[in-house]
Design a protein around this nucleic acid. Structure first.
Lengths: 212, 212
DNA sequence: TCAGACATCCCCCATATGGGCTATGCCGTG
DNA sequence: CACGGCATAGCCCATATGGGGGATGTCTGA
């Protein structure tokens, strides 16, 4: 019952692609059929090869992992994506699963764990590295920021004052202050500087366009 | 004149080690003789194997790449270290070279570039990926933060107020304010929040102990 | 239809922040 | 020795920030 599982590998680091491919290709039932180093290429190669599984790095030069997953699912609802990342914050894992990933795998995983997760994901079952579940649980507790609040955080990170943020977002300074108050409560931050730190460290802004 | 170059590979990501090793071992004159996944193990393995070259990931779970280089050079002044990193901010490259690395290599580098850099580094010549020099140049222009200023930044990032920072560092609040003024000027930051953003994005605090 | 989340706006006010200025002592380099 | 960078510290002051309150409108889901 195990026909070969055909895999599309997406990572912008050459050595990671080689490492993954050589690890996977040792297994008789796993085969890397294509490799992409950015999101656009990944989507194009999916159309061409229709792989059974996509192994997707979360950080890519053009799109975020979440964007790639959403684009794939829009066109191929059955697409199975296993997110691979070096960056194991709760937020990223949460976003990956929200976006529709079937699992999340750390780059530090050894071969057995890696192969195991790939086989599970190929069957559409949830696949996680060891300590991920605990991190997820803690994330669920914390309320997430609204889209507008994320916009405010993005401005905050650029070092803009409340007045400047108000102008840029076309709202009053009072509104900006209230947003920031809410953001500080949600993130349990001590002040706006702490908000910026938490946002950057947790990768809250990962899925925003770099120039936006 | 090319005896085999014996290499110690240091990276906490399994797939990266596999990818590097399989790329390097294809070359007859390059041989990976040992692999470490953290800084302590790297130093121990250096003592044991005395490799001709160390390929070192900048981000490790225990020590920073800079700490490893300094520790190696203290014991083996002739040690040659090529820094490998996914994280190409000017600051990190600058710090790596300051610490005594012979070169800096991006993880996205393809095989020819990778092999070329390794061969150069093995001969003790400067080895860089393509766009590194330009980034370095821009870094040289900017003044670097003093150790004390970095301590202040580390406190800032935790969301501490000037008063709290003063208490924690055992100095007066006035001094903290003056430090922050200087930091803002050096980093061309608009306010303390911007300082935190820049510090995190540029990796200014990379070589500080996580708990410290 | 009513509750709840979201986004918007207004008021007041204590405190924090950031800029300007001067000044000391230490240390390393020229 | 003198100079400059660093760290320390004080003063004054305008403005920004953060916390409290109350208010409106939309939209979604129970």
């Amino acid at each position: 019952m195990n026909p070969t599982c055909r895999i599309l590998l997406v990572d912008d680091h050459y050595v990671v692609r080689i490492g993954m491919a050589s690890s996977l290709n040792l297994e008789p039932d796993l085969e890397v059929v294509a490799e992409a180093e950015n999101g656009e290429a990944a989507i194009a190669l999916y159309r061409e090869h229709r792989p059974d599984l996509v192994i997707l790095d979360w950080r890519l030069p053009d799109l975020s992992g979440g964007d790639v997953i959403k684009a794939l699912h829009a066109e191929f609802p059955a697409a199975r994506v296993l997110v691979l990342s070096a960056f194991e914050s709760e937020e990223v894992i949460y976003q990956a699963l929200q976006a529709g990933a079937v699992g999340y795998l750390a780059k530090s995983s050894r071969r057995p764990e890696l192969i195991g997760a790939v086989r599970l994901a190929a069957q559409g079952k949830a696949a996680f590295s060891a300590d991920i579940a605990a991190k997820l649980a803690s994330r669920i507790q914390r309320p997430s920021l609204s889209p507008r609040e994320l916009e405010v955080v993005a401005e905050l990170v650029k070092g803009n004052s409340n007045k400047e943020i108000a102008t840029r977002l076309n709202i009053s300074e009072n509104t900006v202050k209230l947003h920031i108050t809410h953001i500080m409560q949600k993130l349990r931050a001590k002040d706006r500087t702490h908000v910026a730190s938490i946002a950057l460290q947790q990768g809250l802004l990962e899925n925003r366009a770099p120039g936006g």
